[in-house]
Design a protein around this nucleic acid. Structure first.
Ligand code: FES
Ligand code: FES
Lengths: 147, 147
DNA sequence: ATATATAAAGACCCTTATATCTTTTTATAT
DNA sequence: ATATAAAAAGATATAAGGGTCTTTATATAT
């Protein structure tokens, strides 16, 4: 459903949020280790995220990644949008050039239910709501979770 | 959501079914034209489908593609499964190694609703139900539909 | 000032999905 | 039998996603 890059991005952002709440700004290698992603590739992803202002960074000794205090919620939709665009929320599930209720493909009625369910999910869920669940022990960030 | 190849496959199969109902066995180039897919690439897809017995073919003059009269319904799930596997119906939406309700990722509860909705859709819908809608004029096979 | 720790930037590589082309096989019409 | 029409098979090409490596810029500690 989501690209690998987007999955890495979401997990990384959740980890950064958790660390920020502890007053810590994690760096590339620390995050990559935690989300079990390649270090160099993770760095590329974080560049994309900071360029689009979903994330802040500081270079130099003691640097790392953190969230802007002002924008308190970052939706999963925004992350997806930056990483792979929002095409999946518009396109026809049958592969037609565009999705159109007036001239639907045979998949349309059933498909848009699923597609919109997914859309609502990623619009309502944020990095912060996900992170909260992890913090509360209701969910895990990775499969070997030690914390 | 689905790969381009899978989309081509589904549209092609619907067209073949419609033609079969008219007593006709379409060939590669006719189908490719109708679904607006590259001819050679379409041929490759049909090879995959026939190899997995989702479709029958006949070589030689007057040959073409058709469905086995015995198996009257072919689910969209079966097509997806042959074209790209069923991974999307099992995997964790958050990117963890596996999806597990006992040890869920923070996305789990909301995500499986969407994922299972999609699963039910493709399990219940068949090439024949889709084709019927097109035949009845309730839906279209392509965007320039002349029929 | 200098050394060090860190992210940014850019060039590059590998794998997979998508797509094309050519040759071979098989059935039919004549 | 031969010519023809069609799919099968296989080799190759192109583009995108995923991943690596090296160099550069920047902040901090000493
Ligand atoms: S027209 Fe195909 S999903 Fe809407
Ligand atoms: S554990 Fe992530 S979707 Fe089930």
């Amino acid at each position: 459903m989501l690209s690998k890059s987007t999955e890495y991005a979401i997990r990384a952002l959740a980890y950064i949020q958790l660390q920020n709440w502890k007053g810590h700004r994690p760096g590339v290698s620390e995050i990559a280790l935690e989300i079990e992603a390649p270090v160099a590739y993770s760095a590329k992803i974080f560049q994309t995220l900071t360029k689009h202002k979903l994330l802040e960074s500081m270079k130099g000794r003691g640097g790392g990644f953190f969230f802007d205090k002002n924008q308190s919620h970052l939706t999963i939709f925004d992350v997806i949008n930056v990483m792979e665009g929002d095409g999946v929320f518009h396109k026809c599930g049958f592969g037609l050039k565009n999705c159109n209720s007036k001239n639907p493909c045979p998949f349309h009625n059933e498909y848009i239910t699923v597609r919109e369910g997914f859309y609502n999910l990623v619009k309502n869920e944020t990095i912060q709501t996900l992170s909260k669940k992890i913090q509360n022990g209701e969910a895990v960030l990775n499969r070997l979770s030690k914390e």
